[in-house]
């Protein structure tokens, strides 16, 4: 497949770097200011090098990339809330040309799921978005395989930054501010961690799950009940630990509701992964509980989910 990658952050750059290994050619690559396009396939090393040294990927612009030669557009620009722009415009540009779209950006499927599905219905192209929920883990493909009708509830620990903070607080008896600062030093948490610690990122993933599971209703972030872990006192984790429990930020999608909040779980439960690990637990109608664990973030990890989607499109 010929791939156009929009977005040159950790995820987009990893897709460009790994695409060849998965048997695909990168024919376009764009960040917000520049683009490189080559119908024969880009010189990946040269393009990534230029991004590192000059801060641009090439001399073309975004429009050239969007209208360029590709079979699949990979949308990996930063998440935006509300109208999900400019990601939505990129999705539309590809689908209007009957090209496939693979999303790493959660915005379009969390905030404008109905619009995405409508554009897809009018196009020969398909939209896949495995990478938007749980990074490397096969979450949406598990739902597709089990069947949304046979899943009664989904719960998940879906934010590595938050999970790192809660695990460290519980293990070391340290307070919130201290552990958050440490996470920032390690690069586990962003300089502005509010998107993670306020629960927004986890909620967006829950909303995407609700959209995929629901047949007739569209969800957006406004439909989710969201509570984060900001300033959670160490005494909460201490009391939980004394009782053989711990606290995890968990999203629950059940009976048409999306709820995110810190929850008490047994210390050794599947839903108590440690460090930056993520876990998703499905309650199924005929197959009991299914748990999927893995790395929920990171450039190469997320790129592997994106390239799995590209592979699915290639086979179909």
């Amino acid at each position: 497949m010929r791939i156009a990658v929009i977005g040159a952050g950790a995820v987009g750059s990893s897709v460009v770097e790994l695409a060849g290994e998965y048997g695909h050619d990168v024919t376009a690559f764009a960040d917000s200011r520049s683009a490189a396009v080559d119908a024969e396939g880009l010189d990946v090393d040269a393009v990534l090098d230029r991004k590192r040294t000059d801060g641009i990927v090439g001399d073309a612009d975004l429009e050239d990339a969007l209208s360029g030669p590709y079979d699949v557009l990979v949308e990996a620009t930063p998440v935006t809330l509300g109208d999900a722009e400019p990601g939505m415009t990129h999705v539309e540009a590809a689908l209007t040309r009957d090209r496939h779209v693979v999303l790493a950006n959660k915005g379009p499927v969390a905030e404008r799921y109905g619009d995405v599905r409508e554009l897809e219905a009018d196009s020969e192209g398909r939209v896949l978005f495995e990478a938007t929920v749980g990074g490397a883990m096969p979450v949406l493909s598990t739902i597709a395989d089990v069947g949304a009708d046979h899943i009664t509830a989904v719960r998940g620990v879906l934010n590595g930054t938050v999970n790192f903070v809660l695990s460290r607080m519980a293990a070391e008896g340290l307070d919130y501010e201290h552990v958050l600062a440490e996470a920032q030093d390690l690069g586990v948490a962003e300089t502005d961690p509010s998107f993670d610690v306020e629960g927004t990122d986890t909620a967006l993933k829950g909303v995407i799950l609700a959209n995929v599971l629901s047949e007739d209703r569209e969800y957006t972030l406004d439909d989710a009940e969201v509570d984060g872990i900001v300033d959670i006192p160490g005494s909460v984790l201490e009391l939980a630990r004394e009782d053989g429990r711990t606290v995890r930020l968990i999203v629950e999608v059940r009976e048409g509701e999306v709820r995110v909040g810190p929850r008490l779980v047994p210390e050794n439960a599947a839903l108590a992964p440690t460090g930056t690990y993520n876990t998703v637990q499905f309650e199924t109608e005929h197959a009991g509980q299914l748990n999927v664990s893995g790395l929920g973030a990171g450039g190469p990890e997320t790129a592997s989910a994106i390239l799995a989607d590209v592979g699915r499109l290639d086979r179909s």
């Binding site: 719960r155 059940r254 909040g261 008490l264 839903l271």
Partner: peptide, 13 residues
């Protein structure tokens, strides 16, 4: 007060 709820599975099946 901040409430940390348990994860309940009531009504799953």
């Amino acid at each position: 007060l901040r409430l940390i709820e348990p994860l309940t599975t009531e009504g799953d099946r």
